[in-house]
Design a protein around this nucleic acid. Structure first.
Lengths: 252, 252
DNA sequence: CGTGACGTTGATATGATTCAACTTGAGTGG
DNA sequence: CCACTCAAGTTGAATCATATCAACGTCACG
């Protein structure tokens, strides 16, 4: 858990990462100059997590953070030793920014890939001021929280009622949409940096069946898989199979 | 959809119902006199729904309401014609009290039994005033909303990872706890006024399998069933089977 | 050039669904 | 008061989807 300030001024790596940071807010153009400056300042203080590392432990109060790079997940550990992944967290997604107090926290947050996050405690405090000077940013995160809740219900519905193929199709489209939104994917491809086991933990399927399901989708020419990437070959049919209805990223 | 004012002053039916209304807030003792008066006033304006009636339609902005009597559910309709029940709403539970704006509302709310609800638009406005005079009540509903979210995740986890028996056991304990909390159940019994089909829609099981699952639980002497009631005979084992962890009704 | 994590494939087992028949119980009208 | 009807629940048999077990392939990395 390395806490480090931004590097020297003209470091190209920092600039690229900072670009991602701004882009991930979607229509960053709507942000005021003050809001951009704030984000840039926050971005200097970030933490790194390696794949598999626990970002916050079950039962502990989660510190407010925003994912800048990499994938993480919210999960619940199961009595039998397994886990259920509740939601994937992608760049731009916030951890505990909104509602820090939970009745009984049985969830933990874990990095699925290498993750870079920035501290957002200050952001929460600024939002609490209600000074009106950061309202666009505030709205942006509020919208994110609403999308998160919608995804939660989407998952619940699909776990309760869909076949393996339907769940997979839906998840793939969801992830493609989210990645497009933050500029990580263009066209019909999406990054898929996680293992079948992790997919299975999210979809409520065994590793073996994740493999079979993907193979079936490939055989039906619905998707193609390169290492680390998946391309959606027939979005209409995937949408039909997954029963997907776009949860468009509305801002207000 | 009958909107009617309270009946005459000393109507015993109204009084009983009003008692339930106050009790359902749990530790009603903590409410100020002003808050009680407010609730009583609100309680004069209520709506009745018969079993099966839609309380609010998919896609329409839900009016703020509080269930006073009966069971309702939030649900999503499925492409195939079925539905997934997302959550059960019991007396004291609020509809759309907190967060009226949703990104894309695919849910509807439906009465499962005869339901009596009271209008809570005024309540929402009063809360928005932030005058500090109704804070206990506000906290009470905020806590309810948090419990609701916890239940959502509970459901998601169980749909993704548990067997039919485990899901059923967990749901029964959850419902018993909730009914106890609002004074509708005492001891180890709970009211079960809904059909196997409705249970199945919530648990992601077929009607037939709901029946089989309950029969199995009966055979193992874990529950007993009378018409409209279920008694939990061995709470420890049910808890173990369902992987239940109490989401205790905390207030702050 | 092992070694270990990840993915694939086949065989088998199991839990849940579906279809169909039958039972039960609560109205409802004669 | 009885007979009819309809919704809900139960039970058995066949089928289907997914899990489990096991073996093997492949690739990255020390």
């Amino acid at each position: 858990m390395t806490l480090q300030a931004g590097r020297s001024r003209r470091d190209p790596i920092r600039d690229a990462s900072e670009g991602a940071m701004l882009r991930l807010m979607g229509p960053a153009s709507a942000l005021s100059g003050e809001e951009r400056t704030l984000l840039r300042r926050l971005h200097r203080f970030r933490e790194m997590f390696s794949a598999g590392q626990v970002i916050n432990e079950e039962g502990e109060p989660p510190p407010a953070q925003i994912i800048v790079e990499g994938w993480a997940c919210r999960q619940r550990l199961l009595p039998g030793g397994g886990r259920q992944i509740i939601d994937f967290l992608l760049p731009g997604d916030a951890i505990a920014l909104a509602d820090p107090i939970r009745p009984l926290d049985l969830e933990s947050t874990v990095a699925l890939t290498r993750v870079e996050s920035m501290d957002a405690v200050l952001l929460r405090e600024i939002f609490a001021l209600n000074d009106g000077r950061h309202d666009v940013l505030k709205q942006l995160f509020a919208a994110g929280r609403r999308r998160e809740e919608t995804r939660l219900i989407d998952r619940l519905v699909r776990l309760g009622s869909s076949s393996a193929q339907a769940r997979m199709a839906h998840l793939l489209i969801e992830l493609r949409d989210r990645q497009r939104w933050i500029g990580l994917a263009t066209g019909d491809s999406l990054q898929m940096p996680i293992t079948h086991e992790q997919l299975g933990d999210a979809l409520g399927l065994s590793v073996v069946h994740v493999s079979r399901t993907l193979t079936a989708l490939k055989a039906e020419r619905l998707i193609s898989v390169r290492s680390g990437w998946i391309t959606l070959l027939d979005e209409d049919r995937l949408t039909a199979i997954g029963g997907y209805r776009a949860g468009q990223p509305r801002l207000h």
